[in-house]
């Protein structure tokens, strides 16, 4: 009897940890660049559903030669773009990349982006994991 209860408890615990244990990216998108634009921004929401914190160390993009994490900061009455070396993902929290806040800056586009097509981003976590994301190009006019 005791053994059965213990095994059920263990099973429940195991299934709970298996269901958590995920860093997920949602609603990723890239803003359709105007003609002549050499830089473009990508946005997303990162959910860390694990019990421990993580950190985004690096980002790369198949369609651009360079990709960086940026934040916008107010400096007097000016807006300043700040290059971030990494982005913390606290346990159980969502980190939002949205216009006016953080973004992924893509520079050196390898081809012209069209509305609706996917841009492929790769996020590298500090623990070595890689998240591959397809971010559709959205016309924000």
């Amino acid at each position: 009897m005791k053994f059965r209860l213990l095994s059920i408890l263990l099973l429940v615990c195991w299934s709970l940890t298996a269901q958590a244990g995920e860093v997920e990216v949602r609603d990723a998108w890239v803003s359709l660049p105007p003609p002549g634009a050499e830089v473009v921004a990508a946005y997303m929401v990162v959910l860390n559903m694990e019990a421990q914190g993580h950190r985004l160390r690096r980002v790369s993009c198949d369609e651009a030669s360079e990709a960086e994490f940026h934040a916008m900061r107010r400096h007097g009455n000016m807006m300043q773009m700040v290059h971030l070396e990494g982005v913390d993902l606290p346990a159980g929290e969502r980190v939002v990349f949205a216009p006016g806040g953080m973004h992924i800056m893509l520079r050196g586009l390898r081809r012209t982006l069209k509305r609706g097509e996917d841009v492929h981003l790769h996020l590298f976590l500090e623990d070595g994991r890689r998240l591959d994301i397809a971010a559709p190009v959205r016309d924000m006019r």
């Binding site: 105007p34 634009a37 050499e38 940026h70 807006m79 773009m81 800056m105």
Partner: peptide, 17 residues
């Protein structure tokens, strides 16, 4: 300026709308 990925396209988008 055009090498501005976030604030300027946002501003121009709002102005156009």
């Amino acid at each position: 300026y055009t090498h501005c990925p976030d604030a300027c396209p946002m501003a121009l988008g709002v102005m156009a709308r």
